[in-house]
Design a protein around this nucleic acid. Structure first.
Length: 141
DNA sequence: TCCTTGACTCAGA
DNA sequence: CTCTGAGCCAAGG
């Protein structure tokens, strides 16, 4: 897939991503985009470019995360697990926390979506409170 | 140094 | 619902 990138300061950016991911409680999920939206544009990046690439940088951070990070709770904006080696394990871990998938492999954000950390926590860490997760369309029954 | 390769998202068709 | 293109950086072989 063409068009990727890494943040100006990968180490610092990844550490921030991991710290946010650690706030997601069991049985809840967030998205690469939601985490990216909480972090101010790194370096001299303008907001437009950051919004375009931030989610991919979050994905890159999750690929290298320490063991204490609940990486399985970070999924894509469609409410699905991004296809890759390890995707099956991710699904199993989430199911063991009580997260349900519909027959198309989608998670309902209305039920399992995380609303972000407390505003106070965001304030302390210099982060933005995240916008609500976009409603996906889980197929009924 | 050159080339490849990446856990994404959104708008359109 | 599915599929495509655009966004255009940095580490490692």
């Amino acid at each position: 897939m063409p068009g990727f990138s890494s943040p100006p300061n990968p180490k610092e950016y990844q550490a921030t991503v991991w710290e946010i991911a650690r706030q997601v409680p069991p049985g809840k999920v967030t998205t690469y985009g939601q985490i990216a939206a909480m972090i101010p544009p790194p370096g001299t990046l303008n907001l437009r470019d950051y919004e375009a690439f931030g989610p991919r940088w979050v994905g890159g951070a999750m690929a290298n995360c320490p063991e204490d990070v609940p990486w399985q709770r970070v999924i894509n904006s469609q409410g699905k697990i991004s296809l890759r080696p390890g995707a099956e394990l991710q699904k199993q871990l989430l199911e063991s926390e009580g997260v349900k998938f519909n027959e198309r492999g989608k998670i309902d954000f209305d039920i399992y979506g995380w609303n972000g950390p407390d505003p106070e926590w965001c304030q302390i860490h210099g982060l933005f409170p995240p916008p609500p997760l976009a409603k996906n369309q889980p197929r009924l029954f």
